[in-house]
Nucleic acid binder design. Structure first.
Length: 879
RNA sequence: GGAGGCAUAGCUCAGCUGGUUAGAGCGCAUGCUUCACACGCAUGAGGUCACAGGUUCGAGUCCUGUUGUCUCCACCA
């Protein structure tokens, strides 16, 4: 019974329906089940403010492919989704909204402002989730989490307090990276260095005793307002006599000391460095060693503060201009050089970051890094590809304390209360009402919130119930694979690993699968400002989700960037269509009572055994590739099998039987067609979930859905070596005939007789029908010896046969001679190289036996081929 | 300054622990209204696997160096 199916696959008609079916079926949901092995992935939570982009598409595709593969393999597969509160990004978004109403967050006050953010979150927070569903993500949505939900808040509180109790969290005044635009501290990882053209100003600082002067150079003259010393190298003969003397700070007219410290390099500039301990991390260190005063001259908005004298109130850049002008007027400016240098910028707003001394909370990293280094060094967590473990280790081994406080309102507020009476800081799991030291109730909670990554760092275990020892936690934790881009190894992966080690005693996953960035077709990063981003949803709309997913994995290897070509989506759409039509062919021929499963082995014909044997090999290889995370290689093999082996050959090979009257043979062919298609669909499902499910549902099948069908397994029973090679002999003949006919411009419609001279009659008897149909022969005759009349015959030589086609006038004797000679020459050349190898005693004795045998076989085949070609040539010459 | 990636067909890229007469997609050429598919079929052209050494019976694949290119980390005023 033929089913009416459209000629082209229409993903829009299929995807939402299938997705709904999966969701309703509860196939995404995983519960503890001791009879199954768990396999868990936690999704890198996208920002609530986020819009789905190609990076998400890449991320989600890889994870979903792995999860679906494992689910089919019988694992209890859990993919935990969630969304990140994204401190700065979200706060900025809501503040922008407020600005339209002419308000700032200060107008609302903290509480009201946070209400607004939560409103915003409830309104838009689900948008990215809906978009992920469009990608076919088979996450357990019942377990969707938010980094600010109750459980996560509890986990954050627990971690903060316990680290504090262990002395691994402290509050201190340090030089931190300050973004005057976002008005908050940033961690080192949040600063991006950009090479910018600037100037090096050389400034004269006169000695206080009038005995001379020193010249210092700076790229940030405005910081001189906070200078509290000048530094020279202790070994610098030029300045030996001024160490300990005072110099006069121009414009500020105050005396500051000259100190000697290794930090100053004799070779750079004049060898004298001005010291601004409040605005430069190195100067701060030198200042500590030499007891220099710390004077902060910039406020939180990047304006000069009261300590900046007459420059107070000027923005840092205006102040710079003014100061340079004043220095010049005062004769202090020696010279100005063009100087290009790296400037730290904010990863969010890209404005220049200002190093500023400030009281912030830090995580002491050295003790935590130890275990995080060990687990990677000893392979408890492996990076794929391996080279990223080097990146990770290098960072972890040189890690500096992590600045975790942010001067924002949106985020996990720091659970620390300062006593207004005794100054003691109370850190507590429960909200504190009084000072734990003096009992005073006059305590103030620290207004700052934690770095967003502080909560993301706990993601693999907080989402499974930690700090409670829940069933889920015990069963699914540690998770298995983490999939993410190399751009957040430091931000996130590193912090999850040390957090997991510190709080759960286990590394949170055994494998980190790293992928590259998706770039535009010119290799540029996709970005809003360039406007070169391609919307995944648009691609899904145009070509279907499966095509987009295929684009993400084919021809891509872990860790490498990829360029996004719309053309490849199109190619993958075409592939989907190919598969669609192959199954249409099968279904059109299917009878009402069709069953699935293999026919009895004794009914199988050569083509069936050939395809089954090839399929069997494919299953083995693909499974191995998938297990090694070589998804691109795996999918390429599946693609080739479907298009080349199944569609271009097997389907063609079955046509004679399907259109014949022999019900038994027809039935066998159909059953094999269905069987192989079913297996193909299973192999392809993790990559192209929608179309495979849709087709599978319409075929005879056991079980509810392909998403939970069993992953195919290699079977010894289905390895048919001999039949496979016989079939390939026939195929070689067919290809050779087609090639010759094309060369001679003979159209397919023009059939011709075919004579086959071979010692392997059986092979060609079995293959006769195929040759007839696919090589346009009207009759096929098997011969034992050369035909009598070679005049007007084209001869074609293959590895085990000679084929003759009478082509009469079309045959050009000279051309034929030239062609055969050419073939002969190349065969001889190749044989010579093989024989060279085989006569090399070292090769025979040292190469593995299998390799040597393979070479011997090849040589033998070529000897036979050459013999046949020589015969042909001789016969041709006689004519 | 330190670390790493990439360099293979006109373009974009695969090629796993060394053994294929080096592959794919797109593009190109020629032919085909072949009863699943023109989002198709058939046939074909196109590669000194950046360069120079080395290890090996054997190197696109491993090692060293060179050149070009990209990225990350650190940051000397």
């Amino acid at each position: 019974m033929a089913r009416e199916l459209p000629k082209t696959y229409e993903p829009q008609q299929v995807e939402s329906r299938i997705y709904e079916m999966w969701e309703k079926g509860g196939y995404f949901h995983a519960e503890k089940d001791e009879s199954k092995k768990p396999f868990a992935i936690v999704m890198p939570p996208p920002n609530v403010t986020g819009q789905l982009h190609m990076g998400h598409a890449m991320d989600a595709t890889l994870q979903d492919t792995l999860i679906r593969f494992k689910r089919m393999q019988g694992y209890n597969a859990l993919w935990v989704p969630g969304v990140d509160h994204a401190g700065i990004a979200t706060q900025i978004k809501v503040e922008e909204e407020l600005r339209k109403e002419g308000l700032t967050r200060y107008d609302l006050g903290r509480e009201k402002f946070l209400e607004r953010v939560w409103d915003w979150k409830h309104k838009y927070g689900n948008r990215i989730v809906e978009q992920q569903k469009k990608l076919g993500a088979s996450c357990d949505w019942d377990r969707a989490r938010f980094t600010m939900d109750e459980g996560c808040s509890k986990a954050v509180r627990e971690v903060f307090v316990s680290l504090y109790e262990k002395g691994l969290i402290y509050k201190g005044s340090r030089i931190i990276n300050w973004c005057p635009n976002c008005v908050t501290a940033l961690s080192d990882a949040e600063v991006e260095y950009v090479d910018k053209p600037g100037h090096l100003w050389h400034i004269r600082y006169p000695l206080a005793d009038g005995s001379g002067e020193v010249v210092v150079a700076t790229t940030r003259p405005e910081t001189m307002l906070g200078d509290t010393g000048v530094c020279v190298n202790p070994n610098d003969e030029r300045y030996k006599n001024i160490v300990g003397k005072m110099v006069i700070l121009p414009l500020m007219n105050k005396q500051i000391p000259v100190v000697a410290d290794d930090y100053a390099e004799m070779e750079f500039g004049t060898g004298c460095v001005k010291m601004t301990p409040a605005h430069d991390p190195n100067d701060f260190e030198v200042g500590l060693r030499h007891n220099l005063e710390v004077i902060r001259v910039l406020d939180d908005n990047g304006k000069v503060n009261a300590l900046g004298g007459k420059y107070q109130g000027l923005d840092r850049y205006e102040a710079r201009k003014q100061i340079v002008a004043d220095l010049e007027a005062g004769g202090y400016l020696v010279k100005v050089e063009d100087y290009s240098h790296n400037v730290g910028t904010c990863y969010r707003c890209h404005k220049d970051v200002e190093p500023i001394i400030s009281a912030q909370w830090f995580v002491k990293m050295k003790p935590l890094a130890e275990e995080a280094i060990r687990v990677v060094k000893e392979g408890e967590t492996k990076f794929v590809p391996e080279r990223f473990s080097k990146t990770y280790l290098n960072w972890m081994e040189n890690v500096r304390d992590w600045c975790i406080s942010r001067q924002l309102w949106w985020g996990h507020q720091i659970p620390a209360w300062t006593c207004e009476d005794c100054g003691h800081i109370t850190v507590s799991r429960e909200d504190a009402c009084q000072c734990e030291k003096c009992g005073s109730t006059r305590i103030q909670r620290d207004p700052d919130v934690l770095d967003t990554w502080f909560s993301s760092a706990l993601w693999p275990f907080e989402t499974l119930g930690w700090p409670e020892k829940t069933e889920d936690y015990n069963y699914f934790y540690p998770t298995d694979v983490l999939v993410t881009g190399y751009d957040i190894i430091f931000f996130w992966v590193a912090r999850m690993i040390f957090s997991g080690c510190a709080h759960t005693g286990k590394t949170p996953f055994h494998t980190v699968l790293i992928h590259g960035l998706v770039r535009d077709n010119q290799g540029r990063k996709m970005s809003k400002s360039l406007g070169n981003g391609i919307d995944p949803l648009e691609m899904i709309h145009m070509y279907g989700c499966d095509a987009l997913r295929m684009n993400m994995v084919t021809g891509n290897s872990p860790g490498n960037d990829m360029r996004f070509y719309v053309e490849r989506c199109e190619a993958m759409r075409n592939f989907a269509n190919k598969l669609w039509n192959a199954s249409r062919y099968v279904q059109m021929n299917l009878s009402e009572d069709a069953v699935n499963g293999l026919p009895a082995l004794e009914n199988l014909e050569i083509a069936d055994k050939w395809v089954l044997s090839k399929l069997n090999n494919l299953i083995g290889e693909v499974t191995e590739n998938m297990e090694k995370y070589e998804l691109g290689v795996a999918v390429q093999k599946i693609y080739d099998f479907i298009w080349d082996t199944y569609c271009d050959w097997y389907i063609e090979l079955t046509k004679a039987r399907l259109y014949s009257e022999d019900a038994g043979r027809k039935q066998t062919a159909l059953q094999v067609l269905v069987y192989v298609l079913d297996q193909i669909l299973r192999l392809l499902h993790p990559f192209m979930p929608f179309i495979t499910e849709e087709i599978w549902q319409s075929l005879p099948h056991e079980g509810e859905a392909l998403i939970v069908a069993k992953w195919p397994e290699f079977s010894e029973k289905l390895a048919f070596q001999e039949e496979q090679s016989h079939m390939e002999s026939v195929m070689e003949a067919i290809r050779a005939i087609r090639a010759r006919r094309t060369e001679m411009n003979v159209p397919p419609s023009k059939k011709a007789a075919l004579f086959i001279l071979t010692s392997k009659h059986q092979i060609y008897q079995e293959g006769e029908g195929f040759i007839q149909r696919l090589a346009y022969a009207d009759t096929v005759t098997l011969l034992d010896r050369e035909p009598d009349h070679l005049e007007g015959m084209v001869s074609i030589t293959t590895a085990d046969a000679k084929l003759y086609i009478p082509m009469g006038q079309l045959v050009d004797k000279e051309k034929e001679l030239a062609r055969i000679s050419k073939e002969l020459e190349s065969a001889r050349k190749f044989l010579a190289s093989l024989e060279g190898k085989l006569s090399n005693e070292k090769f025979v004795s040292r190469a593995p036996e299998a390799v040597v045998n393979a070479e011997r076989e090849k040589a033998q085949k070529h000897r036979e081929l050459i013999a046949r070609l020589e015969q042909s040539l001789a016969a041709m010459q006689k004519l």
